[in-house]
Computed example of a mutant assay.
Amino acid sequence: MKKLFIILLMLPLFTQAQNKDYRIYAVAKQQEITVSQLVSELKQADVIFFGEEHQDSIAHLLELALLKGLHQQQPKVTLSMEMFQTDVQPILNEYLQDLISEKNMIQEARAWSNYKDYSPLVAYAKKQGIPILAANAPSRYTNRVTRLGLQSLSQLSEDAKAWLAPLPIDTLTGAYYEKFVSLLGGHSSLGSFQLYQSQNLWDATMAWQLATHKKLQQQQQILHINGKFHSDERLGTYLQLQRYAPQYKLQTISCMPVEAYPPPAWQQWQSIADYIILTQSATID
């Protein structure tokens, strides 16, 4: 109850700079900015990546504030979410069209266990008629790749392949691979490479969904929400989308919780994202 009360008090503050619960930095300009300034600066972007830590409560509130701002600025906007898998798109659409209950949608669309953190985004999109893109690859196929490698996808039916990025999938060897191996502790093996292949299936499928939707809906600006590993350093899903659709203007946001605000690290941040958001979610009990 205390947490809800604090969050409600915070909502009017999302347009103010120097908010104690978050800070937004425009890296190229080397300036701290407000949410409203961020919305304005993103006006010309085709696809906006919001990279989050999935348990960051302030990030979820900022995502909602950003979606509202983008929608008010440009009504033709789409919300894309890692949190839903491509094969549940029909179910998600039925919920958005008010054909099924939220309870059924949560169960049958395999919503994440912390769906309550994302439900305000979905509720706003539903109320405003904003499309939601179920962007993630079905876990049964990423699991298959982890066990058997990318080549095993060739045995799937054409109907099954339709839920995934087209084969073959680029495994983005180089910086992204080194980053992934480092995350695993620096130990490369056949098992870790197949896990890396499944990561690329994940990334490529999200990117393919973005590219396909944007091609069909040229006027739609897309806000895509994913874990920050998928888009930080303009790798992963970001780089896959560049390969599928190099003509689109992409902007990246990397949001991360911190215990205390450090001095801006402009040079380091340049390689991470166009906008850095620091939050103090851990300070809210």
Rank of each mutant, 00 (worst) to 15 (best):
M10Q: 08
M10H: 11
M10T: 12
L11N: 09
L11A: 10
L11Q: 11
L11W: 15
P12N: 06
P12D: 09
P12K: 08
P12C: 08
P12H: 10
L13Y: 11
L13W: 11
F14T: 11
F14E: 09
T15K: 13
T15Q: 14
T15N: 10
T15F: 13
Q16M: 15
Q16H: 14
Q16L: 15
Q16C: 14
A17F: 11
A17P: 14
A17Y: 14
A17K: 15
Q18Y: 15
Q18W: 15
Q18M: 11
N19E: 14
N19A: 12
N19K: 03
N19C: 13
N19H: 14
K20V: 11
K20A: 05
K20N: 08
K20D: 05
K20S: 07
K20I: 13
D21P: 05
D21Y: 15
Y22V: 09
I24C: 02
I24S: 04
Y25M: 01
Y25D: 03
Y25G: 00
A26P: 04
A26H: 11
A26S: 11
A26K: 07
V27I: 07
V27H: 00
V27G: 00
A28Q: 09
A28V: 07
A28P: 09
A28C: 04
A28Y: 09
A28W: 03
A28E: 10
K29N: 10
K29R: 08
Q30L: 00
Q30T: 01
Q30G: 00
Q31M: 01
E32D: 02
E32L: 00
I33N: 00
I33E: 03
T34I: 02
T34N: 06
V35N: 10
V35H: 10
V35Y: 05
V35T: 14
S36M: 15
S36L: 13
S36E: 15
Q37M: 09
Q37Y: 04
Q37L: 08
Q37C: 06
Q37P: 00
Q37F: 05
L38C: 01
L38H: 02
L38I: 05
V39I: 14
V39D: 11
E41W: 13
E41D: 12
E41K: 13
E41H: 14
E41G: 05
L42P: 07
L42H: 04
L42M: 03
K43L: 06
K43T: 10
K43P: 04
Q44C: 06
Q44D: 13
Q44A: 10
Q44V: 12
Q44F: 13
Q44W: 07
A45H: 09
A45V: 12
A45M: 10
A45W: 09
D46W: 03
V47W: 01
V47R: 04
I48K: 01
I48A: 02
I48V: 11
I48R: 00
F49K: 04
F49S: 02
F50K: 07
F50N: 08
E52F: 02
E52Y: 02
